[in-house]
Amino acid sequence: MGNADQELMQRLAQGDAGAFETVFRTHYTLLLRYACKITGDKAAAEDVVQLVFANIWEGRKRLEVKQLKPYLLRATHNKSLTFLMQHQRQASLELLPPLAEEEVDEVDEQREEVVRLLIDALPEQRRRIFKMSRLDGLKYREIATQLGLSVKTVEAQMGKALQFLRSSLPQALKNSEVSD
């Protein structure tokens, strides 16, 4: 992890846009949530994270970073506080722990994990159909053609998949909170 980060940072220092994109995509969602938590404002959080990455790109030649994630979280933290101060939002800054890195929106990550596990628990064909519809946005007819099934089958499988998620998700979420 540390090594991979250092390699990325080296490539970044040489102006490698691909490395920059990797860094961005790997950490964006996490940083956005973190900034959101501090600023309480999604739009502001988006701006903050943009600024964090824009600064990284601009200062890429001078950056001495061994571990990216803690560095990015700290930068996001600082920029978020700056934002709050500039906009004089009522946030008691002392109440914010200086770096709550490890617990950044674990709940959200947990929810995603739970949903992913539930989807993975679907029988194979049902899971494929559901993903093709929900995640890839394919039409039933397209799914049916691709998988060599009838539209009726796709419809029925979609209903069953959704039914399963609806009946399992609330309990699964509850369990994941308890086990925490």
Partner: peptide, 13 residues
């Protein structure tokens, strides 16, 4: 709402 119908409505089908 029946699950298959809900899925059809949500998936735009």
């Amino acid at each position: 709402i029946d699950a298959a119908l809900a899925a059809r409505l949500l998936a735009g089908e």
